[in-house]
Nucleic acid binder design. Sequence first.
DNA 1: CAGCTAAATAGTTATGATTACTAAAAAAAA
DNA 2: TTTTTTTTAGTAATCATAACTATTTAGCTG
Lengths: 166, 166
Amino acid sequence: MKIGTNEVERRVQAFSEVCRRYGAKATHQRREIYRELLRTDEHPAAETIYARVRKRIPAISLDTVYRTLRLLEKKGLISRAGFLNEKARFDANTLPHHHFVCTRCGFMGDIYHKERDEFLALRDVSAMGTVNSVHIELRGICKSCQKNSRLKDNYFFAILIVISTI
Amino acid sequence: MKIGTNEVERRVQAFSEVCRRYGAKATHQRREIYRELLRTDEHPAAETIYARVRKRIPAISLDTVYRTLRLLEKKGLISRAGFLNEKARFDANTLPHHHFVCTRCGFMGDIYHKERDEFLALRDVSAMGTVNSVHIELRGICKSCQKNSRLKDNYFFAILIVISTI
DNA sequence: CAGCTAAATAGTTATGATTACTAAAAAAAA
DNA sequence: TTTTTTTTAGTAATCATAACTATTTAGCTG
Ligand SMILES: [Mn+2]
Ligand SMILES: [Mn+2]
Ligand SMILES: [Zn+2]
Ligand SMILES: [Zn+2]
């Protein structure tokens, strides 16, 4: 489910504009890292992104890759996937979806679950491989933490871009 | 959903016997680590287990804790939970279940999903807190990996003990 | 289109959880 | 008890990720 080149460029452009609008700098490095993630559906690890972006920006530092990935994640433009004892995997697909992960080679494919009650038997899954285990985590804020609440992180980047695309 | 003291001791005993039967040594350290995990339902991290076991075995090393946790996991007696950028959390509850995790304090509670299609609205969840996001990973072996397959790890410890308990 | 200034980067070092290493200790068998 | 093999304690290494700091640059000003 890769998006086309035009849409990739449209989103990179939107990203640049939103950056400027909110006082963040739309640097070459940031654009290339984001573009690299928009281009692919294979959920690359940080090292992979680093290797690929380096072809176009040979002097880019690994630190910049990690820093930018954190920024994009904080702003809701990308998400982080994967389980413990694995490298983090990044995803610019902001549609709600789940993942099939091969525990042997690391292949990570998207699962869309309209019929949520049968996700184990979804065509998408059986086409990709055999399911051995299902991991579900519901993440949120527990009762006791809700009492001493604080302000949330801002997702303004994501909101602007997602709204303009759907 | 903690299990009683009798059941804890019964399982530690079963573990010792199964160890001997399969040529693994039922050491004091192993028994105490496993007992510590059987005793609680709070999914402690490795450091937490280390701290607790140290009260009874002051000279135990952190390495032994990690090594034993890996062993117990490999044999299917415990499972590892948690997402990326979190410490691993361990669980001796071998019933199939999911987790609610508080992203602020780390509280991890068990979710049983008889009605799988409505897991977002489960009583258990709403009693614990507010869900912000659902993470599902279906883990298994992809088509291309199934071709060059290898032998699986043995789960004989788990099989023996689980069968005798249910 | 220079010059300005806050923000971002490159290159490097540090961190923190987990794993590996090795001499010494201990469990189980004989 | 003695022997043999596994396991441990203590410590060093690893690996992904984050922090640090001098230098560079994006975007503004005129
Ligand atoms: Mn995805
Ligand atoms: Mn649990
Ligand atoms: Zn695979
Ligand atoms: Zn909490």
